[in-house]
Design a protein around this nucleic acid. Structure first.
Length: 260
DNA sequence: TTCCATGTTCCGCA
DNA sequence: TTGCGGAACATGGA
C-alpha cells in the first residue's frame, strides 16, 4: 500500500535491517528496470553495501558504498522483506539482495507497476521528474502549501494526489485527509477559503504522522479514521453511510454528511 | 468470467 | 499553449 506512510515505513525497515552488510549476490527481474541494464545494476550492487536512505514522496533512494543510489518505486503493490530462511521468501520478488551474513532483502511487487533505477543524484532525479516538495518536508510550511494548492484549478483531491504538486499522497491517504478536514473530494480549489486550506494543511501533517506511526497499515488506524472503513459498506461515526464516487478516474471514499 | 485495485503516464479536449 | 480529467497500462485476487 505504498503511499508516503508506507514508503517511510519501508525506509525505516531497511535502515533497521539491511545497512552496512556486504552484498554477495544480486538477482533482478528485468521488467522493472527503468533506464538501467541488469549488468549495470549488478555492477553497482555486487560487493557493495547499502549505506543510507532517503525518501521523497513515494520514492525510496538507497545510497550504495560505490556511490550511486538505487531508486525504488513501489507501484501499487510493492514492499520490502528482510529474511533469513529461503521459505520466508515472498511470492513476487523482483529484486533480491543476498548479504554475507546469510540474510536476504527482497523487493516484492506483485503487479509490475513499480520501478528499479540507478540514480546518481536524488535531487537531480526529483527535478527531472517534476516532483513537487515532499508533503512532510521541513520547508512545506502553510504558505508554501497554500500557494501550491492555489496554483491548481481542479478538484482538491486530484491536486492533493498530483505528485507534481505535493509528493507522497495517494488515493487512500488523500481520502483520509479530506475526511478529517471535512472537505468533499470533489470540491473545486476556487471554492475553498484560506481557513479551509489551513485546516487541510494541519490535517495533512497530523494524518501522515499518525499513518507513519501505524506503519502505514490502514486497518490499524484508530476509531474515527476513514481508512479502516474502506471497501466495506460501512457507517461513519456520524451515523451516515460512507460512499464511493469517482474523482478523476479514482475511487474516492467519503462521508457525504461530514464532508461538504 | 468479469471487475477491480492504494501506482504513473499519455491523449484529447477545453 | 497549458492544464485537467479520464483512459490505458500489467497482473492477479475476489
Amino acid at each position: 500500500m505504498p503511499e508516503l506512510p508506507d514508503v517511510e515505513t519501508y525506509r525505516k525497515y531497511l535502515e533497521a535491517t539491511a545497512l552496512h552488510k556486504a552484498i554477495v549476490k544480486v538477482s533482478v527481474e528485468t521488467d522493472l528496470l527503468a533506464g538501467v541494464s541488469e549488468k549495470e545494476l549488478s555492477k553497482t550492487l555486487n560487493n557493495a553495501k547499502l549505506e543510507n536512505t532517503r525518501r521523497h514522496g513515494k520514492h525510496l533512494f538507497i545510497r550504495t558504498s560505490k556511490g550511486p543510489w538505487v531508486g525504488l518505486h513501489f507501484g501499487m503493490t510493492g514492499f520490502l522483506k528482510y529474511y533469513e530462511k529461503p521459505e520466508e521468501k515472498p511470492e513476487h520478488v523482483r529484486l533480491l539482495l543476498a548479504f554475507s551474513n546469510g540474510y536476504r532483502l527482497a523487493y516484492d511487487c506483485q503487479r509490475k507497476l513499480g520501478a528499479i533505477r540507478i540514480i546518481d543524484d536524488p535531487d537531480e532525479f526529483i527535478e527531472d521528474n517534476d516532483l513537487g516538495p515532499d508533503a512532510l518536508a521541513d520547508d512545506m510550511d502553510f504558505e508554501t502549501f497554500r500557494d501550491i494548492i492555489r496554483g491548481s484549478r481542479g478538484y482538491i483531491k486530484s491536486t492533493l494526489m498530483s505528485q507534481k504538486d505535493i509528493a507522497g499522497l495517494g488515493n487512500v491517504w488523500s481520502d483520509e485527509i479530506l475526511y478529517q478536514a471535512g472537505i468533499h473530494p470533489k470540491k473545486k480549489i476556487g471554492q475553498l477559503d484560506d481557513g479551509q486550506l489551513r485546516k487541510l494543511y494541519d490535517t495533512m501533517l497530523d494524518v501522515l504522522d499518525k499513518g507513519i506511526r501505524a506503519g502505514g497499515d490502514t486497518a490499524k488506524m484508530p476509531d474515527g479514521f476513514l481508512t479502516p472503513l474502506r471497501g466495506t459498506d460501512s457507517e461513519c461515526p456520524c451515523g451516515g453511510k460512507v460512499e464511493k464516487i469517482s474523482v478523476s478516474g479514482r475511487n474516492a471514499v467519503y462521508c457525504p454528511r461530514c464532508q461538504t
